[in-house]
């Protein structure tokens, strides 16, 4: 569906926030952890061909936001989209983060915060115990921080260069939260480490995975994730997987 762009601005570093005005029906379907397939080009051209899967970062009224990092031609082109234009977005897609636990630890690596923030916000608002561990290389890329602060979500920041928060990796204090349900989103080495620590600590753990996708609805079978139960489609059986079923 075509949605009108409300804003599309650089938050910091290479990270941008795209907000579209969606309709009530679409917004009511959104669960925490889902994503949208966002068209990054105008509809009169065919390059780049495919839409990009972006985590649904925030919902306010009928406004739906995506926090994205510029990695290649597609996301670069998306930054050129201006307020007032229409973008095609298919959403919400994928499964969602289980909502019935009481204590959640969200572990975000870099732009991985884009896939976790909404869950942290909604679960916090539902009165659950929510902590966000947010890791980055350095302070200039902490694009999720202003939003975490705005909504008053308890956050511990880790930077690899020590330029903000604690110095080190986001995984370094994980064992302290072993009685929480962990939900992690970030680069593969981080997810792998989180999975291993969760197994050692016997903590319940979910991973939000990101794969190259063509359709986003389960048809193309391109976004396969290797699991203990065979191949699964990241777009429909995911993006949220139990950590113990994912094979890296």
């Amino acid at each position: 569906m075509g949605f009108k762009v409300v804003e599309n601005y650089r938050v910091c570093g290479r990270d941008y926030l795209l907000t579209v005005e969606a309709d009530r029906e679409t917004v009511e379907k959104i669960r925490a952890g889902q994503f949208g397939m966002v068209q990054v080009r105008s509809s009169i051209q065919f390059d780049p061909l495919l839409r990009r899967p972006l985590g649904i970062f925030n919902v306010e009224g009928n406004r739906v936001s995506f926090l994205y990092r510029v990695y290649g031609r597609g996301t670069e082109l998306l930054t050129k989209t201006e307020a007032g234009e229409e973008v095609e977005v298919l959403m919400p897609l994928g499964n969602s983060i289980p909502e019935d636990r009481e204590k959640y630890l969200f572990i975000a690596g870099g732009i991985g915060i884009g896939g976790l923030f909404l869950a942290a916000r909604w679960f916090e608002e539902a009165g659950k115990d929510v902590v966000v561990l947010y890791g980055e290389r350095s302070s200039e890329n902490l694009s999720g921080l202003p939003f975490l602060e705005k909504y008053g979500i308890e956050t511990v920041v880790y930077t690899e260069d020590g330029s903000y928060g604690k110095r080190g990796l986001v995984t370094k204090e994980l064992p302290e939260f072993k009685d929480y349900t962990w939900v992690a989103c970030g680069p593969t080495p981080m997810l792998k480490a989180v999975k291993e620590i969760a197994e050692e600590e016997k903590a319940e753990c979910f991973l939000s995975l990101d794969r190259r996708m063509a359709c986003g609805v389960g048809a193309c079978l391109g976004c396969t994730v290797k699991t203990t139960e065979g191949y699964k489609r990241c777009c429909v059986e995911g993006p949220i997987f139990r950590a113990d079923e994912v094979i890296f």
């Binding site: 065919f46 390059d47 780049p48 061909l49 495919l50 597609g74 794969r211 190259r212 996708m213 063509a214 193309c220 079978l221 391109g222 976004c223 396969t224 994730v225 290797k226 191949y231």
Partner: peptide, 9 residues
């Protein structure tokens, strides 16, 4: 996997 890759058009 990986099973897909986008190319020009």
């Amino acid at each position: 996997p990986p099973r897909i890759w986008e190319t020009p058009c």
